[in-house]
Design a protein around this nucleic acid. Sequence first.
DNA 1: CTCTACATTTGACGCCGCGTCAAAAAATGA
DNA 2: TCATTTTTTGACGCGGCGTCAAATGTAGAG
Lengths: 248, 248
Amino acid sequence: MSNLGLNRAQDRKQKERLERDELILNCAQTLLQRDGLHKLTMQAVAAMTEYSKGTIYQHYHCKEDLLGALVARCGDKLVGLLQKAATYDGSVRAKVALMSAAFFYNGRMQREVSSLVAMVKSEDFLQKVQADQQTRLKNIDNEIFRLACTTFYGAQGSKGKLTTQEIMDAAFGWWSMSWGINDVMNQNWDIKRLGFSDPMSFYFRSLTIFLDGLGLEPDSQLTSWNDVDAIAQMLFSHELAQCSDTPN
Amino acid sequence: MSNLGLNRAQDRKQKERLERDELILNCAQTLLQRDGLHKLTMQAVAAMTEYSKGTIYQHYHCKEDLLGALVARCGDKLVGLLQKAATYDGSVRAKVALMSAAFFYNGRMQREVSSLVAMVKSEDFLQKVQADQQTRLKNIDNEIFRLACTTFYGAQGSKGKLTTQEIMDAAFGWWSMSWGINDVMNQNWDIKRLGFSDPMSFYFRSLTIFLDGLGLEPDSQLTSWNDVDAIAQMLFSHELAQCSDTPN
DNA sequence: CTCTACATTTGACGCCGCGTCAAAAAATGA
DNA sequence: TCATTTTTTGACGCGGCGTCAAATGTAGAG
């Protein structure tokens, strides 16, 4: 009885702790996106959460740890979107296009966090974050690559089903391509001056070129980015709604 | 006469200033690569150059400015390699493969600097660097894209020469792909666990898939990464020699 | 060679942000 | 109600960034 009460109390504490983890991350992300990295101080996060600095440090051992958690959460969200896309009921081309859209939308919803990924993954930075965060970050890559392989598995190329080698090549190529496009699109690359009035279409067409190279059968339903975008906005409507960020 | 002497003195000063610009960047890069970003302090840079902090600040107005210059220089080096690759006397496939190799080698030679690119390009960061550095950084993107377009211009696709639209799509796709591969390969992505014992080959094959998609005629001389690598090491031997970094 | 005027370099200092920890406050339980 | 344990707090120490008055160096004129 008293034991049960103890457990219940501990459960509640546990839950409160997890909720506060989230609260801190939310505040940090808001500050990051609103004022930029250099204004993101532990003090500011503490003020916004209405806790004191000491309490923040009970959750994240240092600033790097906090940023690592932010990036990890962003990665988890990406994986969530990718999973939705990968299980979409349609052609391989459709799935892959939607997965690319997942990259794009995730990067767009969390521009500032995305731009920290490379920094967080540097060896120097990584050794300051908690060990469990490190494995979390690594699992994200694993999961993305696994999803890509799964998606290409069983796909019909020009000479029958893709071989294991081809599947991995395709997954690797798609992965790096999506990542790069993410950078090019969402970071401060000066793409507008380069004549990309409609960069998403470039996005779609380069992907098409790649999938053509694999010999994937065409999908007559999806002939432009608009087609993909329409589906993506339906599929990701829940996640997109959560983000009040105004696109420019 | 005295006017001439004055000019000569000023020229000398100018030259010394530029030399010191370089010295500072070299020291900063050495510290960055050896000890990581968090150990890269202005004081440490000053100590290494054997000047005082104040003098460093005469060259770079703040730490961001210094890092911006580092990234810009890294970008310039990349453009240099890309230009060499773009003027290589061979098929379009060969040129493109070598240009991709340029990305790869540049990233590899300057891993730590490369991992700062996204951060430096963030709006928040960018507004702290000198205006002329900003335009320098933007011109790098312009130049890379221009080189890519030039390389694809006149290439023979499956249905005759590539159209202007196809050229730009190809350039965009290649660009984002190379950038992404650069990230995937050179940053701390956990690729080794994913079964890429030989990641460069994946690199080459995904590029091949993309170029196949464009319908480019094959190059019988270049059938594996080894072929590309051999040429790249010749072509970039000068730049590669300058970098004493031991590959792992 | 000396003196003056101008240019350059220096490093002590102020400020701010990170991370700590002893003390205060709150929760628990008897 | 009070003792014990847990949690929160924010003042403080430290170190890095960037400044600026003073020191040092340089160049030309007399």
